[in-house]
Design a protein around this nucleic acid. Structure first.
Lengths: 173, 173
DNA sequence: TGCGATTACTTGTTCCGACAACTATTACTG
DNA sequence: CAGTAATAGTTGTCGGAACAAGTAATCGCA
């Protein structure tokens, strides 16, 4: 069964090209600002924020890997580096001694608290300021629709307040 | 001057989290399908398509790097691997002997022609099928607005028919 | 026309992520 | 209550990308 390919029409192609360009450029822009101003990749920043936002500022490695879309080996390497920099600590989970808990240190809290304003500014400058209120709502719906396919379990969006105002910064003041 | 940070409100944060998740997951999904079915990364596929779409199926390295958002060193390495696989050929540009022209071979044309249907199917399954016609137009506008900031020179979107029906596939039939 | 500056690209090193293999602990099952 | 499977993480190896340095050719300009 050789189902004829349904090629993209002009509108579909144009929208797709723009989406691909966006997905290509956005991560680099976020990494560049955070690396320059805080010495963190966007992935590291997100991981630290996720830990900071968790109860007791503590999270299991597997849970963190799921939330950050990382493989466990990748997260393990990143965690080792963050631990060497004194930004997190790892210790065996008492309840399940196979597991490892990661906790963010005061230094880690301080770092993301210092990094957050610049990051939020970048988010505004590169994305939010370019959109109307209506487009913001449309983006929410569109990205949600696509994520239904790409992330059916909502692993990456289950966070409560990953980038907004909230307890994270209150803690580290 | 310590300008107070304007944190994200609930709507902004929710839309942002989804956009980041999308930008995080989409490249991996595209790479996975293309690697599995054609042995090409999405970057390699895009580069081959860009060359195929150029006059005489030929493009300068610098031009190609700009169009694909690659650094020149990165493109040089990728081009070497593609050349080793017989998918492109490189030769010094006669008009400017500093420059290198890359041409896609018949084997390269055949490979992207074979890969295109599966890729387009993935694009539909993961993105386009999830959107209404209205949302498709909104996505075009939203991504365009953001790209004004991220890609003011439209380097990545200057392509004529990178992913749609058109002369590329007609060539390689 | 000759020499410094720029452009175009390649090569080498280093870091990061994917995959595979391994260890340690817990859960299942007859 | 063995013994096997499954889970949670770490470690090792390999390929790819960023950055820096090097090479070759062209441009600018006196």
């Amino acid at each position: 069964m050789t189902s004829e390919t349904k090629w993209l029409n002009t509108e579909e192609s144009a929208a797709w090209v723009r989406l691909v360009a966006l997905a290509e450029l956005l991560p680099g822009a976020l990494d560049a600002q955070l690396l320059r101003d805080a010495g963190l990749t966007h992935f590291e920043y997100g991981a630290l924020m996720a830990i900071a936002d968790a109860p007791d500022r503590t999270m299991r490695m597997t849970e963190l890997a799921s939330r950050t879309n990382a493989t466990l080996p990748r997260l393990s390497h990143v965690a080792r580096r963050l631990e060497e920099r004194g930004l997190i600590e790892r210790y065996p989970c008492p309840e399940d001694r196979r597991a490892t808990n990661a906790t963010i240190t005061e230094a880690g809290m301080q770092l993301i608290a210092d990094a957050a304003p610049g990051h939020v500014a970048t988010v505004r400058e590169t994305v939010l300021d370019a959109l109307t209120q209506e487009q913001l709502e449309q983006l929410y719906a569109i990205a949600g629709a696509v994520l239904t396919r790409l992330d059916p379990d909502s692993r990456l969006t289950a966070t409560s307040c990953q980038f907004s105002e909230g307890p994270i910064l209150a803690h580290a003041g």
